[in-house]
Computed example of a mutant assay.
Amino acid sequence: MALPSIQLSSVGGGEAGQAQLLCSAQPGVNKIVVYEHAEFEGLCREFTSDVPDLHELDFGDCICSLRVTGQPWIAYTAPKYEGDAYAFEEGEYRTVEKSRALSALRLVHHDLAEPQITLYEHPDYAGQSKVVTEETNLTYGYFNDRVSSHVVQRGVWLLYRHPARAGWYHVAWPGERLPDYKAELGFQNCLSHLRPLQAGRPAVSARILWDQRRVEDERDVLIDEIVGVNTTDLEQTFTTSSSREYVTTTLQSFRFSNATSLRVGLSFTLAVEASNVFTVEKGRSESSTRRDRVEVQLPAKIPPRTELTIHVVRKESTVSVPVQLTVTQNERTTTEPGEYRCVSGRTISTKYTMKPAPLPGGEHSPAAPCTPEP
Rank of each mutant, 00 (worst) to 15 (best):
L158H: 05
S148M: 09
H162V: 05
A166H: 10
Q116H: 08
Y140T: 12
R154P: 05
L112W: 04
V131K: 02
V147T: 15
V147S: 03
K130I: 03
G155V: 05
V151K: 04
D145N: 14
F143Q: 03
Q153M: 08
Y169E: 04
L158I: 10
Q116F: 01
W168M: 11
H110M: 11
H122N: 07
S149K: 02
Y140S: 09
H110N: 14
V151G: 00
W173G: 06
T139K: 12
E135N: 03
L119F: 06
I117G: 00
V147A: 07
Y142M: 10
V131S: 05
T118W: 01
L158S: 06
A126I: 06
L112F: 09
V132Q: 04
Q153Y: 07
A113Y: 11
G175S: 08
V171G: 06
T118L: 03
L159E: 03
S129K: 08
P115V: 01
S129L: 06
V131F: 00
V147I: 15
P123L: 02
H122K: 03
V156L: 06
H109W: 11
V147C: 13
W173L: 14
V132C: 08
V147Y: 01
T136L: 12
E176D: 13
W173D: 10
G141S: 13
L138Y: 02
S148I: 02
G127R: 02
Q153E: 14
Y120D: 00
G155C: 08
V132E: 05
A164D: 14
H162M: 12
N137W: 01
K130V: 06
P123T: 05
H109G: 15
W168K: 13
V156S: 02
Q116K: 13
S129V: 04
L158P: 04
G167D: 10
R165K: 15
W157I: 08
V152G: 04
E134G: 10
T118H: 01
N137Q: 11
G155S: 10
E176V: 08
V131D: 03
P115Q: 05
Y140R: 13
L178R: 05
A166T: 12
L112T: 07
E114H: 15
G167F: 07
F143L: 07
V151L: 08
A166L: 13
A166S: 15
A126E: 15
P179S: 13
V156I: 12
D111R: 14
V156R: 00
N144G: 07
A164V: 10
D124C: 08
R146H: 09
D124Q: 14
G167W: 06
A166M: 13
A166Q: 15
E121N: 00
K130S: 06
Q153H: 14
A113W: 11
D145S: 11
F143S: 03
L158G: 03
L119D: 00
G167T: 08
W173T: 14
R154Y: 11
